[in-house]
């Protein structure tokens, strides 16, 4: 793993997620791709299991800083589901684009719900917008696999290298 390249990619994704990604919101201003979840899935399926744990928690930390109302919920939820996906990838290879899309869709829903549940432990609950959640998951799932290509190039990951 090229950790410096990973850090640079993560900072860029966090900055883009904090504000500029609003430009490509569709239908509703809240329906926009979640670049950090896309990165989470990318590193979960392109790293070895130990690296996947580190990258998952680090991406969660960046997500809490860039978008979270408080620190902690995304560190835990990204770490948990990123690690689970990396372990699942050892059993079922997530190589094809449709599978990657499906992984992004499911992971985004799971991380969002679990981060909300954890957030509710600290601050008052709010009603999650199911329409926005599914819209964001679908949008991210559609563009995610295409973003894997520049990410793989930047990380110098060879094609069909899945770190197993």
């Amino acid at each position: 793993m090229r950790w410096f390249r990973f850090a640079a990619l993560l900072v860029i994704a966090a900055i883009l997620q904090a504000e500029p990604v609003n430009v490509i919101a569709v239908i509703n201003p809240d329906i926009k791709p979640d670049l950090l979840v896309i990165l989470l899935v990318f590193f979960a399926v392109h790293s070895n299991p130990s690296e996947a744990i580190i990258t998952s928690f680090t991406i969660g930390f960046a997500a809490d800083i860039a978008v979270g109302p408080l620190m902690g919920p995304r560190i835990i939820s990204f770490g948990l589901f990123g690690t689970a996906l990396a372990n699942l990838h050892r059993v079922i290879a997530i190589r094809k684009m449709p599978y990657q899309s499906l992984a992004i869709f499911i992971i985004l829903i799971l991380t969002t719900i679990s981060a909300n549940v954890l957030t509710f432990l600290r601050i008052q609950p709010s009603t999650p917008d199911i329409y926005v959640l599914f819209g964001t998951a679908l949008y991210s799932a559609l563009i995610g696999p295409f973003l894997f290509l520049p990410c793989a190039w930047w990380m110098r990951i060879k094609k069909h290298h899945f770190g197993r």
């Binding site: 928690f57 809490d64 620190m71 902690g72 919920p73 560190i75 835990i76 770490g79 948990l80 432990l121």
Partner: peptide, 9 residues
């Protein structure tokens, strides 16, 4: 890492 997350939370 999990422990760190809960400490932050």
């Amino acid at each position: 890492f999990m422990l760190t997350g809960f400490i932050f939370l």
